[in-house]
C-alpha cells in the first residue's frame, strides 16, 4: 500500500504526542520532532497536532510562530545560525556573514533554491569566548573565519548530491 507523506506525518505526530505524555506539555517536544524530521511545520501538521491534543489549531500556530527554532515555512536541511551578539560581533562576525552569503548565494533569512541551506542570525549561542561562532543544525563551530566557511559548507554538501552514493542522506536510510 502506498503510504503518502500525510499519512506518515500523522503517524509520527500521534506517536510523538503519546511518547511525550499526551497532554498539552507534549506540544513543544512534538513540534521540535516535526521540525527536525520535516524541516517545516505545515498547516496540515499543525491541524493534526491540534486534534491530537484537543486544542485549537490557532494555539499551535501561536506556539510555532513564537519560537525562533520552529517555523511553518520550509527550511533547509542545514540551518546555519550565525551568532550576531556583541562578543561575536566584536570578533568579526560581519566578514563571516558576508562570506556565508557569497558562498551560498542567499541573504540572511533565506533558503537556497535546492532546499539544502537556510541562513539565519542567532542571538548569543554561548560561545562568546571563542567567537565568531555558528550552529549548523545542532553542531557548533567556533572561531570561524571567512576562509573556513567553505570547509563548513563542504562538510554539509558531502551528505547529498554527487557525494550521496558514498554517504547516504540520513532521512533516506
Amino acid at each position: 500500500m502506498l503510504v503518502t507523506e500525510r499519512d506518515r506525518v500523522k503517524e509520527d505526530i500521534v506517536r510523538w504526542v503519546e511518547q511525550y505524555g499526551g497532554n498539552r506539555s507534549a506540544l513543544i517536544p512534538t513540534l521540535q520532532e516535526l521540525q527536525r524530521k520535516y524541516s517545516q511545520i505545515t498547516d496540515f501538521a499543525m491541524q493534526v497536532v491540534a486534534d491530537a491534543l484537543d486544542i485549537h489549531p490557532a494555539e499551535v500556530y501561536g506556539v510555532v510562530s513564537f519560537y525562533s527554532f520552529l517555523d511553518h515555512r520550509p527550511k533547509g536541511k542545514f540551518v546555519i545560525r550565525l551568532c550576531r551578539t556583541l562578543s561575536c560581533d566584536m570578533q568579526g562576525k560581519d566578514r563571516v556573514a558576508r562570506q556565508l552569503e557569497n558562498d551560498l548565494g542567499i541573504r540572511f533569512g533565506e533558503t537556497t533554491p535546492d532546499g539544502k541551506f537556510t541562513l539565519e542570525w542567532a542571538n548569543c549561542i554561548g560561545m562568546c569566548d571563542q567567537g565568531p561562532a555558528l550552529l549548523v543544525n545542532e553542531q557548533v563551530f567556533t572561531r570561524v573565519t571567512p576562509e573556513k566557511v567553505h570547509d563548513i559548507l563542504e562538510g554539509c554538501r558531502r551528505t547529498f548530491g554527487v557525494y550521496a552514493l558514498e554517504q547516504k542522506e540520513e532521512h533516506l536510510v
Binding site: 551578539t85 556583541l86 562578543s87 542571538n123 548569543c124 554561548g126 560561545m127 562568546c128 569566548d129
Partner: peptide, 11 residues
C-alpha cells in the same frame, strides 16, 4: 536556558 549575551558558564 542560558541566553544572556556573554554568558557561557552554564554550558
Amino acid at each position: 536556558d542560558e541566553g544572556e549575551p556573554g554568558t557561557f558558564k552554564d554550558r
